[in-house]
Amino acid sequence: MLGSDQVLTLLAEVVRETFPDRDFPESVDISTLLFADLGLSSIELVVLGEKLEARWGRRLPFATFLKGLRDRGATDIALGELVVFLQNNPPQLV
């Protein structure tokens, strides 16, 4: 299983590659919020999910993950939550 630091690094790479024109903070950590801190919107999360699937080399249950967040009333998503999700769904190709 990839360590959380490794996944966070990969995740940060995919976020920057997916939205190359955005002015993201220099450094991020597991508490960084996708909406509030990175300024992403819901449709951009869908696009991010698609890019993560490409990087991970497999279909990811990203929609289930997003619906689960909404079901429990989450108002934002921390990178740490996404890291755990990705650790639970390891890549076939990195």
């Binding site: 919107s41 819901s42 449709i43 999360l45 869908v46 999910g49 289930t64 909404r70």
Partner: peptide, 8 residues
Amino acid sequence: LAVWVFSG
């Protein structure tokens, strides 16, 4: 289309 993804 995100509305269809987030709603499940």
